[in-house]
């Protein structure tokens, strides 16, 4: 079979990731100079340019301003090739909007993500409901390029913009009783067709949780943007977790609830099939899922005749940073 270039998007229209990254480095170089550092238009994250015809998600004005003032966190970024934007916004597991990879991009476009608020509850000194703007405004946004490893044995490299999770959580002053933190996705069957499906075996709302020391780890991240713009609804707008050492299903999307607890919360996939989905869900090539060997992964996008098969690394390659969190755990048992 002959593989032809796409007809819809001419190659000349696509911004190669290298150019996109170079531009960013160039701008950062400029930002470092006195002239730019002093000026209000010192854009560390330039407004990204995408292929014509692809949807762009700007988000509310306050967020757009904050995105433009964001900086790149090189230390916590991989230098691997970033997935092309059109694939990142059209290859999504977000069952609230359908189980097909293309369903969320189709069904989530009218999803209302502004205004948005998050309820903070449980073992904290400062519980309550907080608007997204109030939650994000006090913090400088940073970009991190990370590996997303799905439990279905595929992976993608994605540039997220957001705030370190620890910074975000500390402002609510978790008490000494807070041993776990639980994140809940919006439950709104009117907007989310997947939640209306009678054939679904998942309990809504979607809930996943972390141990407190995991949540406070510098790699744990709360994203509000992607590719220099706001998060697209199909990617979990307006607020989602990014936990690079854990399988993607832990990366809770469209978060409306953060609850601190003393005991381990019941989590969605674990409730559905405990023998298949552990609470921790750390990427581990040594523990297979009944449906997928986790020893290797297919890095997407992948070409047909030379599938991009790579060996999966323990903790998705972030072992140096996070392995110590689990030194007292049998990872075959606590998968």
């Amino acid at each position: 079979m002959l593989i032809k270039k796409p007809t819809l998007i001419r190659p000349s229209e696509i911004t190669p990731p290298s150019a996109y990254l170079n531009r960013r480095q160039f701008m950062q170089g400029l930002a470092g100079t006195a002239a730019f550092a002093a000026s209000a238009s010192a854009l560390a994250l330039p407004a990204p340019q995408f292929d014509k015809g692809l949807p762009v998600y700007a988000g509310p004005d306050w967020l757009q301003q904050q995105l433009r003032a964001g900086v790149s966190n090189k230390a916590l970024s991989t230098d691997e090739k970033v997935a092309p934007y059109q694939h990142a916004i059209r290859h999504n597991n977000f069952y609230e909007f359908g189980t097909g990879k293309g369903d969320p991009a189709k069904n989530a476009q009218d999803f209302i993500t502004d205004p948005w608020s998050v309820e903070i509850s449980g073992e904290v000194n400062r519980p309550g409901t907080i608007g997204l703007e109030d939650l994000i405004k006090p913090h400088q946004l940073e970009e991190r390029i990370v590996r997303l490893r799905c439990v279905e044995a595929w992976s993608m490299v994605l540039p997220f913009v957001g705030v370190s999770l620890a910074t975000l959580l500390k402002q609510f002053e978790p008490t000494s009783k807070a041993k776990y933190v639980e994140f809940t996705t919006l439950n709104d069957p009117k907007q989310m067709p997947g939640q209306r499906s009678v054939f679904s075996s998942l309990d809504w709302p979607y809930v996943e949780a972390l141990r407190m020391d995991e949540a406070m780890h510098p790699l744990a991240f709360m994203a509000v943007g992607m590719y220099g713009n706001a998060l697209p609804p199909q990617n979990g707008a307006p607020l989602r977790l990014v936990l690079p050492w854990k399988y993607g299903f832990k990366w809770v999307k469209s978060i409306v609830g953060i609850r601190f607890t003393e005991t381990m919360p019941a989590t969605t996939w674990n409730k559905m099939a405990a023998q298949e989905y552990g609470f921790f869900a750390n990427v581990n090539p040594a523990v297979s899922h009944p449906r997928w060997s986790q020893a290797t992964e297919r890095r997407l996008p992948s070409s047909l005749f030379r599938p991009n098969i790579i060996d999966t690394q323990p903790f998705n390659g972030y072992g140096d940073e996070v392995a110590h969190l689990y030194s007292d755990l049998d990872l075959k048992k606590w998968f």
Partner: peptide, 18 residues
């Protein structure tokens, strides 16, 4: 499906789609 693959209409993971 061959046509879809040939015209790159199958997204990030054509292997699985096919």
């Amino acid at each position: 499906i061959s046509w879809q693959a040939w015209s790159f209409a199958l997204g990030a993971d054509p292997a699985k789609e096919i």
